[in-house]
Nucleic acid binder design. Structure first.
Lengths: 339, 339
DNA sequence: GACCAGAATGTTAACGTTAACATCATTAAT
DNA sequence: ATTAATGATGTTAACGTTAACATTCTGGTC
């Protein structure tokens, strides 16, 4: 119940001024050794804890950064957060973690709250349904440092830290092509999102460079979760025999998992009947009965890089709006066919 | 670059007092409709965002709660955090997430920082090496609401939200016994931690109730990670043939994964040569070549319950120190032998 | 038109801290 | 002893907000 001890209380207890106590607590010089000792003892015995709220109010600096993620459950975001936390910790920043649950409104509200709490900067990974650009323009005009990570709004004018989505998508599509597949489908993500757009672009580029046809019905929106993957795959499986793709590139692993479930339900075999590849290298990918060929995203690195980028903006060392890509790595397993 | 607009600036721009603006922003009554409208418009056009730091300083209430976790990577903690976040969100609290990385000193530092940032309460899951009780006693005397979750310090005098560790450990050990195993080993966790102690207790209780011998060398400390599990299992496998256990109960799934690796390296077969069970139902458990029998921990529920408990203390609705157990569920798969 | 209730608005001080400046004490140099 | 320089400490105001109290305005009543 000792409530909260203040500098002034310590000062009074010792018959000195609050300023002197402040100097001791902050290790400033020009304080007599005896006084310093006395103050430190008293502070300890009274259980003093400095009030950063007051400090922040004066200094206009909170040493807090806000993080907005669309989901927490899957392995990717926790790893990113670990990366962010590591960098923040090194620089004495704390993280306010908020979760939009893939809801654009909740995301907006989260950002507003973070601003009110006077975070020194915000890191955002957008929900699947984020589309209101004007809001981000307003945010930008506030001058608050912001970086996007993984799921970016390209036109918002903030730096974005992600992976080489397009290149990787192209490469893994090419891998399927190299296996001899010609009829290849893509389970795509929302096109408002950088990852949705870029992975589709990579897919298309690989296909056209190989003069392969992309039937309209082979590009199906699945979203980023299992359920969507399942439903999208079902649509593909419902196509007439000769229109059905022989291989599928899913926007990410969860969507691939859903698709795999659909394929299994139809009694088809991977990769013999249909080959499939994913993206993200979910922790489960290699443990599947037919291990999933996918693209490994160095999530921890993305988190670190994004945090470093934000901190450099906060510290005024960096003004430019950049697009930073951490390099991925293909994980060739068995779901794509023999190799 | 609009920096941060204040109430006073809005007031000046309109030629009225800051107080009136404050009243409008906070939806207090006794404000003329015209004034209200004028103020809201101006606030919008100037890009006003309330400063919660200042608010918190006055009200001594930050609507922020601190969370300290020992790790972020594995599936358990992200789920717990999701549960915490959900409850916090409903009640308009934000989360400051800190990560001790299984380091007792870093944990202490994190708690101090959270106190400085004047969080309204703290939720802690201890590192494996936390042992300094006196620190927690000091913390308790500060009067700040605290609850432990999952990994608790029983003697610290704070409420603890976890699972029915002892009962579940006993049950899963009994399951091995029911399979006819008599020589059963336990890979244990740090005994400073509630989960380490309770799971060991459950194991011992099941064994003694069945009049089974527990050889000293069958209880090996593995810690909570794969590496420790691997090394501990190696020790067991190095025992002379007749002393070697036929079944193993690992403190948690990661430790079990490490142990499985050790067993595999020795060319032994699960469950034929050695049966193994874990605890926590890691996302990978059911995907292993021999799916792991384990105890499912409702992590999301633990997070929710812990957050609810903390908030009830913060709101002064609850004074008592409780030990809350969320019920687990056994997941019988194949690693424990036929069933 | 005097008076009053209630609504609308304003003023002051406080939350805990520290930058900037002011004062007082001590020591060293002349 | 006088002065200057430096070290130790104190005072004031400010950060943005709001509770508590103070003042002014409005319309209605007699």
């Amino acid at each position: 119940m000792s409530s909260n001890v203040t500098l002034k209380q310590i000062a009074e207890a010792l018959g000195i001024s609050a300023m002197t106590v402040s100097r001791v607590i902050n290790n400033k010089k020009n304080v007599d050794e005896k006084t310093r000792k006395k103050v430190l003892e008293k502070a300890k015995s009274m259980g003093y804890t400095p009030n950063y709220l007051a400090k922040s109010l004066v200094s206009n600096k909170s040493f807090t950064i806000g993080v907005v993620v669309p989901e927490i459950s899957h392995s990717f975001f926790p790893e990113v957060i670990r990366g962010i936390e590591e960098v923040a910790y090194q620089e004495n920043y704390q993280l306010i973690l908020t979760h939009s649950a893939e809801d654009a409104e909740r995301e907006k509200a989260a950002i507003e709250t973070l601003r009110s709490k006077r975070v020194d900067g915000i890191m955002i990974s957008c929900s699947q349904f984020t589309s209101d650009l004007s809001y981000f323009e307003e945010l930008r005009s506030s001058g608050l440092p912001v970086v996007f990570f993984d799921r970016c709004m390209d036109e918002a004018g903030f730096s974005c830290v992600g992976v080489d989505d397009k290149a990787a998508a192209k490469k893994i599509t090419q891998h399927l092509i190299d296996h001899g597949y010609k009829k290849i489908a893509h389970l795509k993500g929302a096109q408002g999102l950088s990852i949705g757009r870029r992975r589709l672009e990579g897919f298309i580029e690989a296909m056209s460079e190989n003069q392969l046809e992309i039937a309209d019905e082979w590009i199906v929106e699945s979203g980023l979760q299992e359920k969507g993957g399942f439903e999208a795959m079902m649509k593909l499986l419902d196509l007439p025999e000769d229109k059905r793709p022989r291989a599928v590139f899913a926007i990410n692993d969860p969507a691939a998992f859903g698709a795999i479930e659909a394929i299994r339900e139809r009694g088809l075999v991977i990769p013999d009947d249909i080959a499939i590849v994913g993206f993200s290298d979910d922790i489960r990918a290699e443990l599947l009965p037919v291990p999933l060929t996918t693209v490994h995203q160095p999530a921890y690195e993305v988190g670190k890089k994004a945090a470093e980028t934000l901190l450099s903006i906060i510290n005024g060392e960096n003004e430019s709006v950049e697009n930073i890509e951490v390099l991925t790595q293909m994980k060739i397993r068995s779901s794509c066919g023999v190799h």
